[in-house]
């Protein structure tokens, strides 16, 4: 079944699953998992080279060979200055103005520093970046990020790497309802395909996840499971779900009930 593409900063995507590239058991499993996830966008980062190797170079070759679009991040940045400088460095190395903007404010939860986030988003948007801000599900922060020039918002489901799913389903629903025309991506906290399907059923445009696939017992199989869940969730949202009821309602017609119900005790 064909579903309308997702447009992010003017780029049409068929896949609504954005995949991280970290924590995989091997580069080969990473490559297979990205293919199994049917991901068209993968996140990458910039780091210091460790040792005397050229692992950065071989990683970059692997990603380029996958033929996917890259979304560099500013993971680990704790100040506006660090995030902006990292974004500028990433734009040159990866050849894209897309940036997943993270400004981390708290170590235990890796919760975004939304004040720094809004400031950095404004600086980067004015500098021509297409900013994908990693944010909390706060409506006011969302407004300010849109005002700063963001055209996509990425609220967390739960803390990064926690796998806890959608911690604030009500808040995420409110955000969706408040910004019906802004592409919204749940980024972080998704642990299972059912979490991803739930986000998509709420009307989220896509999900971004990493650990849930990379740390699965079989990452490639889990990638396939997530791909199916994201597609199912999207179709369910478009199809329109039934309203829940408090009481049972027979699904089999009651008209023509055998024996007219006369054999009931």
């Amino acid at each position: 079944m064909s579903v309308a593409p997702l447009a992010l900063y003017g780029v049409d995507l068929t896949s609504r699953l954005l995949a991280g590239t970290a924590q995989y058991p091997s580069p080969a499993i990473l490559a297979s998992a990205v293919k199994a996830a049917r991901a068209e966008v993968v996140t990458v980062s910039l780091r210091r080279e460790t040792g005397n190797g050229r692992s950065g170079e071989s990683f970059w070759t692997l990603i380029r060979d996958l033929g996917v679009k890259v979304l560099p991040n500013t993971a680990g940045c704790r100040s506006v200055k660090e995030a902006v400088t990292t974004a500028q460095m990433a734009r040159e190395v990866f050849g894209t103005s897309w940036i997943k903007l993270e400004v981390i404010g708290e170590d235990d939860t890796l919760q975004p520093d939304v004040f720094g986030l809004v400031e950095a988003a404004g600086i980067l948007a004015r500098d021509g970046f297409s900013v994908f801000p990693y944010m909390t599900e706060d409506l006011v922060v969302a407004e300010k990020l849109l005002g700063a020039g963001c055209e996509v918002l990425m609220p967390w489901g739960a803390p990064i790497g926690s796998g806890r799913g959608l911690n604030n389903r009500f808040g995420l629903k409110a955000l969706r309802a408040h910004f019906p025309n802004v592409p919204l991506i749940v980024d972080a906290g998704i642990g299972t395909p059912s979490h991803a399907a739930e986000a998509m059923e709420l009307g989220y445009d896509a999900v971004l996840l990493n650990t849930a696939i990379a740390k699965a017992g079989d990452p490639v199989m889990m990638a396939e499971a997530f791909a199916g869940a994201v597609e199912a969730g999207r179709l369910a949202y478009l199809a329109g779900a039934m309203e829940p009821r408090n009481m049972a309602a027979p699904s089999t017609p009651t008209a023509g009930l055998p024996f007219g119900g006369s054999l009931r005790a």
Binding site: G20, T21, A22, Q23, Y24, L30, T43, V44, S45, L46, R47, R48, E49, S55, G56, E57, F59, W60, I63, P72, N73, A75, T86, M89, V93, F94, I160, G161, N210, T211
Partner: peptide, 8 residues
């Protein structure tokens, strides 16, 4: 001096 690396 930074190089491309895996990221989430």
């Amino acid at each position: 001096i930074l190089v491309p690396k895996q990221g989430g």
